[in-house]
Design a protein around this nucleic acid. Structure first.
Lengths: 130, 130
DNA sequence: ATAATAATGATTACGATTATCATTTTAATT
DNA sequence: AATTAAAATGATAATCGTAATCATTATTAT
């Protein structure tokens, strides 16, 4: 059910978001069980752990390599269409004896909603100053 | 002194590493003061906050845009020489109404030391199996 | 010298994640 | 079916990095 909810949501859920969704179907499930199974599912490659620059880990229904954009205001994460960068990253034991495993690219920005809120706040502020 | 230690170290220090270094000169400084001043220094652009994929934030003596490689075993972070990716990332309000601010690229790997340890462990294990 | 402002140290609070552990569930074996 | 072993679960506590609080001290301006 944890897997189903993640795949159904088509979003990049945090553990507690998954917890809330699954609890609608399994009201007694504990947060620990959610964490444990998120771990299992990502180890199995059925979902993908996203350790991006913010504090909470997210889980991606898509397991293929791709990149993300994160809103620095509200934390929302979405996919972003940027070409695969494998060719730019050193391979194998390329870089000063490091064995390269993977890479992550995260774009930071402000999402349309937060942008809109910022603009209306600005306008309100100007109005009150008239 | 916090700034000095970060610049002197030429590493990518965590808050508690900075704390330990600074405490050698100011034994009574508190961790809170370190955190507060790390915040101030990065707001001033004198150091750069690194919010990479691991749990602890790091602070970079270099403020120019560049990328990092992190060891998934020991957490060590070093600079990595990859060309600037600004041209790949959408600009301004480019992507579905998002206002783009920045981007981070983090390469993951195993550092030479951890590689070496893994190899000697492997060797030990094989020897015990003889 | 005095008052206002800011910074500090000490401590607590917080939020995400992990660990523990007794209990329950599942699977395997008789 | 009954019995046993193994695994998963819920409840809870522990951990760890960071942020917030607050009384005290230091700095600055008047």
């Amino acid at each position: 059910m944890i897997l189903e909810e993640i795949q159904k949501s088509h979003r990049h859920l945090t553990a507690s978001e998954v917890y809330d969704l699954v609890r609608e179907r399994l009201p007694n499930i504990s947060l620990g069980t959610v964490y444990r199974n998120l771990e299992v599912l990502s180890d199995l490659g059925l979902i993908r752990r996203l350790d991006l620059g913010d504090t909470k880990r997210r889980y991606d229904f898509t397991t293929e390599k791709h990149y993300h954009i994160r809103c620095v205001k509200c934390g929302r994460v979405e996919d972003i269409d940027i070409e695969n960068l494998d060719s730019l990253c050193p391979k194998g034991d390329g870089d000063r004896g490091w064995r390269i495993i993977d890479h992550n690219l995260e774009v930071l920005g402000i999402c349309p909603e937060c942008n809109h809120n910022a603009n209306s706040n600005k306008q309100n502020k100007e109005e009150t100053h008239v």
